[in-house]
Each structure stands twice: as C-alpha cells, then as structure tokens.
C-alpha cells in the first residue's frame, strides 16, 4: 500500500486514489494534421519507464483533484508531488527529498508552494517521443 501525499489533503492510503498513467502527455495541438502513426502514438503509446516516472493521480475519494507525482517504478518510492500544469521537477532532487518517504513530499507540498526539487532546469519530458507537442500548461 502506497502512502500518497495529496497536495490538498495530506498523506492518505493508496486506496483513496485513482491512477492516471503517464503525466505530461499533451493533446495534439493540430489533431487534423496527424497521420495514423502519430494518432497511434498519442492513443496507445506511453512511456513504460523502469525508474523515476512522472505520473498522474486523482484523489478520487478525497478532494477529487488531479496532481502529478514522481515515483520510482522499481522501489515504488515517491520522490515528488507537484501540481498539474507544473513542469516535471528535476530528477536530481536533493538527497533528503530523494530518500524521503511520501510524508516528506507531503510537508513540502501541502503548504501550496512548489514541490521539492522543482526547478527551471528540468529535463523536457513534456514532449513525447512522437514529436507531438503542446504549449506548457496545456491540457495534461
């Protein structure tokens, strides 16, 4: 059972949440211009990362709000919780946050400030490998 820090409600059991898969997948900017291959990429292809993965969660039995999370898919450690629309935090998070449990992230995010490790120098996972891009802050 994961202990997940909802940015609005604090630490809650995983059973209160609904998983939303890969984060930062944008709706195609010009859907009419996509060929079958690009549509397939958008509809069916998602990263299946072994390691740190940016993913969406919905606190479905709490505040019913979506948020993003960085989680290691091998150790299942939660590395960061951050709002929808925010860029992915750098994976080179401070040692304290990286080793931290869900509650570490909770304390940092329930204040409403940015998540630990959030930085302007993040890598750019907001674009998928298919080349489908959308402006930052578009539907995620």
């Amino acid at each position: 059972m994961l202990l997940i820090s909802c940015p609005n409600c604090g630490s809650r059991d995983e059973t209160e949440f609904h998983y939303g898969g890969q984060a930062h997948v944008s709706y195609p900017e010009n859907p009419n211009e996509l060929n079958d291959r690009e549509w397939a990429e958008y509809l069916f292809y998602r990263d299946n990362t072994k390691g740190t993965f940016a993913e969406r969660w919905l606190h479905s039995t709490g505040c019913r709000q979506w948020f993003n999370m960085l989680r290691d898919t091998v150790t299942y450690d939660i590395q960061a919780v951050y709002p929808m629309g925010a860029p992915r935090p750098s994976t080179a998070v401070p040692a304290a946050a990286e080793a931290g449990t869900a509650s570490v992230a909770a304390d940092s995010t329930t204040t409403g400030t940015t998540a630990p490790g959030t930085s302007a120098t993040s890598t750019s996972p907001g674009t998928t490998k298919s080349g489908i891009t959308a402006p930052e802050g578009a539907t995620k």
Binding site: D13, Y19, F53, T73, V74, T75, Y76
Partner: peptide
C-alpha cells in the same frame, strides 16, 4: 496493481 511497476511486488490491499 493500478500503477506501473517493475518491483515484482504489489500492494497488500
């Protein structure tokens, strides 16, 4: 388990 995972273990619930 609903989440992606490579850990060869899942959640108890």
């Amino acid at each position: 388990d609903s989440y992606n995972g490579y850990g060869q273990r899942g959640s108890f619930h």
